[in-house]
Design a protein around this nucleic acid. Structure first.
Length: 321
DNA sequence: TACTCGTGGGC
DNA sequence: TGCCCAAGAGT
């Protein structure tokens, strides 16, 4: 394989690399592979979607649910979904509002809607089978670069780099010596992840999930357990004395009084009601009228809420007679 | 690119 | 205790 560092581009298109991709010697890379794969073999959590019997659909659902949501919270909801909708066709046949309701409190409920849309596309255009190629997966609603790679790799064994927030943090600490990765995924990080991928396809699939697991359990964002890390002796960040992050300041997510809080309150009312709700019930959940109207309009236009007659509302396709 | 989009647990 | 952040995607 050609080292990314040897690829040449016109100077005008070359951006400064957030990560100075070190041309990691093959010998060091091999020892990192062995240490992390060995660690994963004994430390991996028994997540149900890692079971060899789990279908590609099960993997797909788990990856969408885990977007920005801790996996510990995903597990019980995932079990309910797979029992209720064991194939894409089962979900596609359900009302979209039922997907939103069954999403529960995982957050970002538009993911439930997109998962429902993806199930319809898979059913109608892919013969009910989750596609195996990253490019086909990427075309499905709610599937971005990460999820496409994750499903291709974990469900079908396709040897592509899988780069999530855990992988980014592990690689930047281990190989670049920084505490945190840049705010957004850079070209240099993609190159680094590709260069770090084991050549053996079988090892590559396990490597991806193993690095993710290392980031989730050991190389955590807040309080990394460096003393338990299988590659602590090779870590540039630890070796440098764990220097503090020097990049652009991360802005916190405002919450109190935001539209996100309002939308969450409104949708909770609709999730918890068996059928339609009226204006008064929504007003009780969010008294500010202007903001309530704005958020309700947005929820309707996004397809998360269905307006009914007489100023009543319901989850889409779920209103009772 | 920068911003929006939920929710809850750990430190 | 409040703040940070979690297997990102869409615009």
């Amino acid at each position: 394989m050609v080292s990314p560092a040897t690829l040449t581009k016109p100077a005008t298109l070359t951006k400064p690399a957030a990560i100075a991709a070190p041309s990691t010697p093959a010998r060091l890379l091999a020892s990192l592979h062995a240490a992390i794969l060995d660690w994963y073999a004994v430390a991996a959590r028994p997540l149900p979607w890692r079971d060899p019997d789990t279908t590609a659909w099960g993997v797909f659902v788990s990856e969408v649910m885990a977007q920005q949501t801790p996996v510990a919270r995903v597990e019980p909801v995932w079990r309910e979904w797979l029992q209720r909708w064991p194939t894409p066709a089962h979900l596609a046949a359900a009302a979209p509002g039922e997907a939103v309701r069954a999403w529960g409190r995982l957050g970002y409920p538009r993911r439930a809607l997109r998962l429902h849309e993806a199930a319809q596309v898979i059913t109608e255009r892919h013969g009910g089978q989750v596609p195996a190629e990253p490019e086909e997966l990427r075309a499905l609603p709610g599937v971005g670069e990460y999820t496409a790679a994750a499903v291709a790799c974990f469900a079908f064994g396709v040897a592509v780099p899988v780069v999530d927030t855990n992988v980014r943090r592990v690689l930047v600490r281990l190989l670049d010596g920084a505490e945190y990765a840049a705010p957004s995924l850079t070209r240099a990080e993609r190159d680094l992840a590709a260069a770090a991928l084991p050549r053996d396809a079988g090892d590559a699939a396990v490597w991806n999930v193993a690095v993710m697991e290392l980031g989730a359990l050991i190389c955590t964002a807040r309080s990394p357990r460096c003393g338990e890390c299988p590659v602590q002796d090779s870590c540039r960040w630890l070796g440098a004395g764990r220097p503090a992050y020097q990049g652009p300041a991360r802005r916190g997510q405002a919450w109190e009084g935001t539209d996100r809080q309002a939308r969450g309150a409104l949708l909770q009312v609709l999730r918890d009601a068996p059928g339609a709700v009226d204006e008064a019930q929504l007003a009780q959940a969010w008294p500010s009228e202007a903001q309530r109207q704005r958020c309700l309009d947005a929820l309707v236009s996004e397809g998360l809420v269905e307006p009914l007659a007489n100023a009543r509302f319901a989850l889409p396709g779920t209103q009772l007679e």
